[in-house]
Amino acid sequence: MTQATTSPSWERLRDPSFWADWTAAVALVLLIIGFSIASPVFLTLGNIQALLLAAAILVVLTIGQTYVILTGGIDLSVASILTLGSVVLGQAYSRGWGIGVACLLAIVTGTLVGLINGLVIAKGKITDFIVTLGSLSAASGAALVLSNGRPVQIADPFLLRLATGRLGPIGYFVILAAIVAIIAHFVLFHSRFGTHLLATGGDTEAARAMGINTDRIKITAYIISGCLAGIAGVLLTARVGAAEPASNTSFLLNSVAAVVLGGVSLFGGRGTVIGPVVGALLLTALVNGLTLLAVSQFYQPLAVGIVVVLAALLMRYQQ
């Protein structure tokens, strides 16, 4: 979908795999039409700003997940890394180490957990599912240990400005998420690393036969995922105004769901960055719209689940 094909565009529209690639975009458009008819508030500038702000953290997390899934793996630890990063930030801040150092430590912690994930998966030859399930538990445990189970309030002007400030009509969060997405897109399609990542995920043996160090590629993908989860931890702390050791399971499920909605093959080697970003927007819009329509909060996970499974069904047409 990123490469220009020679076939005329109308021919592509009849190709079911085209629709599978663009599941998220099509669904997002339908959802926006539906919600804007049902609720006059949905398409107002204020609501769109709130929606994008709410989506930013998920977008950052989703991009890391996308890189891992493109290698044919999965990172179940992203939400726990986010929590751990947030707690590390809180602890460092409450010890008076300064907000810059605290944020940096949160990101470094996420990166380190990602590195460990990658090393154990690539060098230890253990299934990604098991390794990241383990680090899911270990990272949330570490967050509890570090914080002694107690949240830390953070009223820092820098974090406050990060969460509420905006450039024109666009919030800093949104700008940050957009920058991450643009860089991730360029790295994936315009760098050697990106091509090698797709090759590793698509056919590890072939990539290795061509001399690509597939272990290094996989480890790097988990490092990126961990680093972005750490950044997402900083964003969440800024948004909530506190570092809480509480688990954020919905972030994990939504990040995987957004990747699936975004047309990325769970077998690896095929996908985009834009797709999962749109997937994350779709999931956030779904929750936002249902809230506007005063649908009980309890229905939201149900709706997300149905949308994801429907998307996965559509993906079967992907070639």
């Binding site: 490469q3 091509t195 090759a199 072939a206 990539a207 036969a209 080697g269």
Partner: peptide
């Protein structure tokens, strides 16, 4: 096995690891 990546284009395969 040819060592070609199915999801990459022909030119990407020709230049794989020699980009």
């Amino acid at each position: 096995t040819l060592a070609l990546c199915n999801d990459l284009t022909i030119w990407q395969n020709l230049f794989l690891n020699r980009e």
